[in-house]
Amino acid sequence: MKRVIPVLVLSVAGLIPVWRYEPSIGTTTTTTTTTEAVSTPTPTATSSSPSSSSSGSSSTPSTSSKKVVQGTAINTDKGTVQVQVTFEGDKISAVSMLQQPNHPQTTAAVPVLIEETLKAQSSKIDTVSGATITSDAYVQSLQAAIDAKGA
């Protein structure tokens, strides 16, 4: 019986990170794509330059300086990613996605289906896929002809 106790303690201890765990999925999905974009100033139009040549050490850099930087658009195999970061002083005050891929993990992929008309054709082939063929049907099938040719 004594052995049971440490096991129980361990399993309870193991549960704590699970309780504390908050999936980060919510945050990624809520970043809605903003195609509005680009209205923001370019990074070069940046912080107010300390023009006043006077007061030396005491002057702190102006806290009102807001700087918006757009990252370069990066093509990944999941799609294009581009972020926009807003700095206030030295601190990042906001990050938003200018472009993000339509990855199945964030949005359900909607398959694009092509519609065609049904055609009948014969062609040079190596094998045939068809619905579960029975031995009787096989005798007259295209696959039987291919097998006979190869044998």
Binding site: L118, A120, S123, K124, I125, D126, T127, V128, S129, G130, A131, S141, L142
Partner: peptide
């Protein structure tokens, strides 16, 4: 390989 799909 060329795999034919049987006409239904």
């Amino acid at each position: 390989w060329r795999v034919g799909i049987r006409h239904p």
